[in-house]
Design a protein around this nucleic acid. Structure first.
Length: 169
DNA sequence: CTATATAAAGTGC
DNA sequence: GCACTTTATATAG
């Protein structure tokens, strides 16, 4: 492994709970939901073990506020620069997810077809589960074909709340 | 609701 | 590199 990458993280508050935003030199690396700051940091450490995690400094506040705005639906996710790392398949899935209009939902099979791999619905779900940026990649807009929510890495309850707000808007 | 089909990622060896 | 296990599903019974 090379020299550990430095990730700067900071906390923010959303209608759905507390979030932590981890930013690399390239862009936003992760946006995670959590109950407490300690839990969020623990999540970061678990997910980015081996990297150098640095608490937010001055200047991070602005970025946090921006992310929070996006989470609240007051800003476009496309305005943020993401630094997503993953398998080509995961990248394809995440890109396809970002193409889903706000307030609309797609089934896992829809996403699978969108990435040119019809029948890969379960793999899509797995890729979504690995999605590190929570709301910025709208994995919460992906539901089952029968209309059920399915599952959510950060809790179906949270997914339900997110969808409720977006569909209402 | 339960069982089966079926594709892909993750993990371990 | 190969095989086994698990999955946030889909579809049929």
């Amino acid at each position: 492994m090379q020299s550990p990458e430095t990730l700067t993280y900071g906390f923010g508050d959303t209608p759905y709970g507390r979030i932590v935003v981890a930013k690399s030199a390239r862009g936003i690396r992760a946006v995670l939901f959590g109950e407490t700051d300690a839990a969020l940091v623990a999540e970061l450490k678990a997910r980015f073990a081996g990297t150098d995690l640095v608490p937010a400094g001055i200047g991070m506040t602005r970025m946090i506020a921006d992310v929070v705005s996006v989470v609240r639906g007051e800003a476009a996710a496309g305005a943020l620069v993401l630094d997503l790392r993953g398998s080509p398949f995961q990248m394809a899935v995440w890109t396809a997810l970002q193409a889903i209009p706000a307030g609309d939902t797609a089934s896992y099979s829809e996403v699978a077809e969108a990435i040119g791999k019809p029948g890969a619905m379960r793999a899509v779900a797995a890729a979504c589960a690995a999605n590190p940026v929570a709301v910025l990649v709208p994995c919460h807009r992906v539901v089952r074909s029968n209309g059920a929510l399915g599952g959510y890495h950060w809790g179906v309850n949270r997914k339900r709340a997110l969808l409720a707000r977006e569909t209402a808007a």
